[in-house]
């Protein structure tokens, strides 16, 4: 009886850890952000996402910054960090690893929205952004 209970407990834990791994997808993240924003997924806008990606903003040191500045104008291409390291493409069509790990996605939104917009991005903006990148070819 106890053995069986332990087995059930371990199996449950195993499933939980599998879920905690990289089991997200662009679609599941869009659904999550839409829900957070209180809108249906259909209200996410790829064109708003594209504008967010391309618009230049005044950076901390006065220089213009945008997502495209490092990720390049074409998100299916590899970008470059300020110190010259390669950034793998952002668009899932070119890099299927993208938007498969919610924690990683949140980490980079937190950092890069601060760098580019000087504030955090809203759930709606995050959803729009993924909506655009998911259809970039």
């Amino acid at each position: 009886m106890i053995k069986r209970a332990v087995r059930i407990a371990l199996a449950t834990l195993g499933m939980a850890s599998a879920v905690a791994g990289a089991s997200d997808s662009p679609a599941s993240l869009m659904a999550q952000y839409a829900k957070q924003a209180g809108v249906p997924v259909s209200a996410l806008s790829a064109s708003r996402g594209a504008a967010l990606y391309r618009t230049e903003h005044p950076g901390r040191n006065g220089q213009a910054v945008s997502c495209a500045a490092c990720h390049t104008a074409n998100p299916t291409r590899a970008g470059r960090t300020r110190v010259g390291k390669r950034i793998e493409p952002l668009a899932p069509a070119a890099n299927p690893q993208r938007f498969t790990d919610a924690a990683k996605v949140e980490k980079w939104f937190r950092r890069n929205c601060q760098d580019v917009l000087q504030r955090e991005c809203s759930a709606q903006e995050k959803g729009d952004f993924i909506a655009w990148l998911s259809q970039a070819r």
């Binding site: 332990v6 059930i8 371990l10």
Partner: peptide, 15 residues
Amino acid sequence: YLLRGIGVVAAVGVA
């Protein structure tokens, strides 16, 4: 309660 207790012990062990 027994099941839940075992679950907690197992969780701590795995962690």
